[in-house]
Design a protein around this nucleic acid. Structure first.
Lengths: 140, 140
DNA sequence: AAATTTAGCTTGCATTATGCAAGTAGATTT
DNA sequence: AAATCTACTTGCATAATGCAAGCTAAATTT
């Protein structure tokens, strides 16, 4: 676990993974504008490190040569249970961000939620699993 | 989740929680000597912050006035699923630390493992759930 | 086709966190 | 009473982070 935390143990990495996983983010801009307030240099650094760690990949968008698409790898999507448990824990003990009722439901159906998350990843379905919740909306 | 990561998102906090949860650590010394190489000032700082966050409590050991005992709170033990999933993910994708066969078994019996973890916590049973694995033993 | 905007960064600099070695106070052991 | 042990703290060097600004190439607007 200490190796995992060398990689993921910081303020931002898991948040990026979550946004890729659960919110359908793909581009640099989406992360930058997500309202969590990550600085662009740090974001660039984390994306590079996550790529180096094999958690995500980058590819150019064919329809718009400026844009890059970040996408979780198999190794990255395998973090779904970690992310889900953290979301559940946070909802129970810390945050009011994600609507509590929704999270209670998710906690009751972990397997279904994980299956759906993986399905969307496989099919490249960018529909967010969770509605946006951030500084802009309701998260405290 | 961003609030959770403000608290837990660093190299050491979750490692401390894991050691309390799964290895039966209780005292400052045990953490210091665990071989992960945390500096004593950082350890003191993290223990203070985790206490402030309501994840652990401190009490003096009655038999030895020098020693303090750190112990997870309910909120702390509720991190067990997060820790377990991180352990499983790490075993699958990163580390050779915890014997892989053991982790595969745990992955198959998540509920039982969590129940046993909670039982030990409730009964203050300090028996480690996992054998030591660290720089001193096998973890890379 | 020139000008503007957009996307994904980088750079410079100030602030903060981390790591290391050493030291300290109080309790305990010898 | 001297030595040892536990849980720290302190000082200082180095690394990571945050902020504002700038930069380049591709796309869009005029």
């Amino acid at each position: 676990m200490s190796i995992s935390l060398e990689m993921l143990g910081d303020r931002w990495s898991l948040l990026i993974v979550r946004d890729l996983m659960v919110r359908g983010y793909r581009t640099f801009r989406e992360f930058e504008r997500s309202g969590e307030g990550i600085a662009s240099n740090i974001l660039a650094d984390r994306l590079r490190k996550l790529e180096a760690a094999g958690i995500l990949t980058v590819e150019a968008e064919e329809t718009d040569g400026r844009k890059l698409n970040y996408r979780l790898t198999e190794k990255g999507i395998d973090l779904a249970p970690v992310v889900l448990e953290l979301l559940i824990w946070g909802a129970r003990h810390e945050e009011t961000g994600a609507p509590c009722a929704v999270m209670v439901e998710m906690a009751k159906n972990r397997e279904a939620v994980l299956a759906e998350t993986r399905r969307r990843w496989q099919e490249r379905d960018p529909t967010p699993l969770l509605p946006p919740f951030g500084k802009d909306s309701t998260e405290k």
